[in-house]
Amino acid sequence: MRVIEITDGKGPASALVVGQRPVPQPQAGEILIRVRAAGVNRPDIVQRNGFYPAPAGASDILGLEVAGEVEAIGDGVTRWAVGDKVCALLGGGGYADYVTVDARHALPVPAGLDFEQAAALPETAFTVFTNVFEGGALKAGETLLIHGATSGIGVMAIQMAKAAGARVIATSRTKAKAEAAKALGADISLDSSTQDLAAEIKAAGGVDVVLDMVGAAYAELNLKALNERGRWVVIASLTGNRTEIDLQRIMLKKLVLTGSTLRSRPADEKARLAAAVEATVWPWIKQGKISARIHARFPLDQAAQAHAELEAGDHVGKVVLIP
């Protein structure tokens, strides 16, 4: 089967090439998926650059989410049958014609969605659910602040928060992105290049939860934005990992600072999360409250171009590969 290999060099054109490997065979509890579409995510770029190695036992091939058809099933798998249309969260291996995955980490392709749209769901839906609704404990009537609101995660977070009855304040780097976030459902959408974010958020009454993908540069802004008993959830640090925080402000406002990663979680925990996402998010998709927005599509052998598109930062929604 075709796979995308990482070679020497950190630029996508020099680092990603097409290779050949044997088709993997499903072990007990696994399914083999014929990949019809694979999501491209920022952690893929970080891994390509040598800073996010695959966890023990996971494929070294890039790709954290796919959609396709079940090609074969391993011993003990009862839910799925050959030919079923599924999407799945992976520890790696998605940039390929075939991939095996723990059968518990797969979900049915929602009715009305094609493979490309379904491939854009697992990484974003799982990440938002576990961080915003579990770690951040967002509830109906509360306000969620989303930094990087037009990323794949941001687009999903806007829709899921609105589906849950929350108010959304979105921040983006340009006027066009701010307009896109507003069109996606954000109640207030701010352009960081022209607006005073702290003043605007304060005027809006502050926020209860922050979904932070920016990191160090927005630490002070987040502390100012959060209301009493607010929750600050960090899932990426694009502007740096280190910052200085006044702990007394954390105590006086009774804040919670938390964060998580998804890829390294144990298989049983991912299975629990998959079941929770299916029970909560899949009905929202069926009801039309959530859609999968695709920014760009590339053939598998153009993975380098897909990475370049994501790195350019102009996308609204997901980039996907089509084997």
Rank of each mutant, 00 (worst) to 15 (best):
G165F: 04
P122D: 13
G57W: 08
L321D: 13
V277N: 04
L238C: 03
A58E: 14
L223A: 09
V256C: 11
A103F: 07
E71G: 00
A157G: 14
A54F: 09
Q47W: 01
K253I: 05
A163Y: 00
M1K: 08
V17A: 07
L262C: 12
A88H: 03
L321G: 11
A106G: 09
A118T: 15
G317F: 10
P24S: 06
L238W: 01
I169D: 07
R21N: 10
A54P: 07
P26D: 04
T280Q: 12
E116I: 15
V319S: 12
A178T: 01
A219C: 13
Y218G: 07
D187F: 06
T171E: 06
K10N: 03
H295R: 03
E123K: 07
V35Y: 04
Q195Y: 09
E220F: 02
A304I: 06
Q27C: 02
D212M: 10
V128D: 01
A308D: 08
S291Q: 15
T7K: 13
A164T: 08
I146Y: 10
A176C: 02
D8F: 02
S192H: 05
V35G: 09
I33E: 08
L184W: 08
A13K: 13
I245H: 04
E179M: 08
A96I: 00
A308S: 14
I169T: 09
L197T: 00
A180N: 05
R42A: 03
A296P: 06
G112H: 11
T7R: 14
Y98C: 01
V99P: 02
H105D: 11
S192E: 10
G148S: 07
A119D: 10
R265A: 05
I188S: 01
G76P: 11
L310Y: 11
N131C: 01
V40D: 11
P26F: 04
